[in-house]
Design a binder for these strands. Structure first.
Lengths: 333, 333
DNA sequence: ATTTTCGGTACAAGCGCTTGCAGAAGACCC
DNA sequence: GGGTCTTCTGCAAGCGCTTGTACCGAAAAT
């Protein structure tokens, strides 16, 4: 291992000077030839700064923690990808863990990005010492979230999906909601608001217990097909539900999109790969993680204490699964 | 920030003693009451060891790097999940990056797991200083890989898939191989060997250029349907190809599995969510990352220099997409 | 009673880096 | 030519932790 002292010896200067030169400390005047000697010596010896020693001396780890409550969430992978690239670009390492405890050990990270929830007791505690940015969907219309959050609105996503379907002429619209977690039910509000605003009939399927999310979609779609009046379009709360629903429609011989339009909320390759390319209202997960990282680094490097919520827009992605309902179907039987 | 010195002052001992007590150094005798006092003081003050200082003193970062060449590979997420849990269990942090350079900074990690290739020039260089374990598919039959690798055999996967189809009575079997990357073509060997061994006719589709892997599968399946004799079963090299193929079959009105059996190589939720639950030959990616981590930690903690290749078995996962060919189809027209 | 042993504890030297401060040389002004 | 600047560089004190070694008292062995 090559140390500053080794370089100092080679270049006939002190280790302090080497440190300042290698870190481009401009407030410290060093003559041209000396800089030259030091740089050459460093290059020749193949110097790599010891991150630990630097971290100890400066009190900065140059590392950011990425914490998430569910890694298998399809959105996680894109968040991670974007975050890692951004962190690297800014000279930070990324330490991942699903357990906030991992980051409590003193000084392991300079800040934390928490994915998937706008709060977490242990993370809140961590936030008292070091900057934390929360990233995830919000239940509210607009940016009604607290500080230090980067969000998108599931309310708006649901609203936008229904609006799209209403625009195509659908009058009766189903919602596949999977389980009945209260936090998730809250997000039905966007669906309900749109149904009310456009004077539609909403058919909600909730409370399915099956542990397999694809199967939840499958079963809920089965029930939906038995409803009177039968919806001509359906909004699924996530990728898995949409895929399960699609499977049900396939088996029941219901043509998509001719007899049933399908749109879902999500953002992954999953549903894009189905036998009918599904339209969606997509959340800006990758962008959100980039924004979160930039905000976090600003907090770390510039000592910013707090920034107001950033709410990123939902995007409507039109593919092949939504069309206007057939005349015979749009009028109730 | 609470330091060892603070605790030492509180407990009326020296910081050295505190360190030894808190780290359970058994070779160092400390009286019961003293241990009590130290532990209580640490708890009261809310002591968190400074990882950086410890790392500097011990020369160990208690961190492992996870490096991958493609994060969007569907298998990556399961590898990461398993690796993170294992690392945490063993008291290591996990630092992820797609860029090996990230780990070259002195002493940032104690070792490296490289996912997705059995070699990489920069990582090889890293391996000269610190332990590295490579994880990924191998092209060979059995465990013909170098040391410090955890692999599974794509040769065997392809062989096993074809064997399964042959056992069901299929005589003409297609292979969807996507692009014509030489490294990937090598893996066709398992397919060819099985075709030869069971006296079948193999129809290979390769060299598709489209950048979208799902579309590659879609187009290759289209071509395959025009072949004479038309295969009654098809093996797809990955999830995306399988999904694209399935879409083609749907549009062409070819029933799966009645008119065409489909099996693919992979291991993700992707193809499980299709309208016909696809059978597969699955690779042990999560297990591999766990084994890799254990081996790596053994190398770090016990100074093991090298371990022989570990080759994990491929699993046949039977679902709904493979059946015996219809009599009218199994005999050539 | 003297030596040996050993349980219990403190001391201090690092690990490699950063950084405030002091110091040495030369240039400049009066 | 002595003082004040500027320009350049070295010194050394940490950052918080680990760990080899020295030390002291009391019990055990001689």
């Amino acid at each position: 291992m090559v140390t500053l002292a080794d370089i100092a010896r080679h270049a006939n200067v002190s280790s302090g000077t080497v440190s300042r030169v290698l870190n481009n400390k401009t407030d410290y005047p060093v003559s041209g030839p000396t800089v030259e000697r030091i740089r050459r010596a460093a290059a020749e010896l193949g110097y790599r700064p010891n991150v630990m020693a630097r971290a100890l001396a400066t009190g900065k780890a140059q590392a950011i923690g990425l914490c998430y409550h569910s890694i298998t969430e399809p959105m996680f992978i894109r968040i991670l990808e974007a975050a890692e690239a951004k962190a690297r670009e800014r000279g930070y390492h990324l330490i991942v863990s699903s357990n906030p405890e991992s980051f409590f050990a003193g000084s392991i990270v300079d800040g934390l990005v928490y994915i998937g929830g706008l709060s977490h007791p242990r993370v809140q505690e961590f936030a008292r010492h070091k900057p934390v940015v929360f990233v995830g969907p919000s239940d509210f219309r607009g940016s009604a979230c607290g500080p230090n959050t980067v969000t998108w609105s599931e309310y708006e996503a649901a609203f936008m999906a229904v609006k799209h379907l209403a625009g195509l002429g659908h009058r009766t619209i189903g919602a596949l909601w999977g389980d009945d977690d209260p936090a998730l039910l809250l997000r039905l509000e966007g669906f309900r608001a749109a149904v009310a605003e456009f004077g539609l009939t909403g058919v909600e399927e909730t409370g399915e217990q099956d542990p397999d999310p694809t199967r939840r979609g499958y079963l809920q779609m089965e029930r939906l097909l038995g409803r009177e009046p039968r919806p001509t379009a359906v909004f699924a709360r996530n990728d898995y539900l949409a895929l399960g629903a699609l499977k049900q429609l396939f088996e029941a011989g219901v043509s998509v999109p001719r007899e049933m339009s399908v749109i879902y909320y999500g953002n992954s390759v999953l549903a894009r790969a189905a036998y009918v390319e599904l339209s969606s209202v997509s959340h800006p997960n990758a962008e959100a993680s980039v924004v979160a990282l930039e905000q976090l680094i600003a907090m770390i490097d510039e000592g910013v204490r707090e920034f107001p919520n950033v709410s990123l827009p939902i995007t409507l992605c039109e593919h092949d699964s939504c069309v206007s309902p057939a005349p015979s179907l749009s009028t109730s039987p």
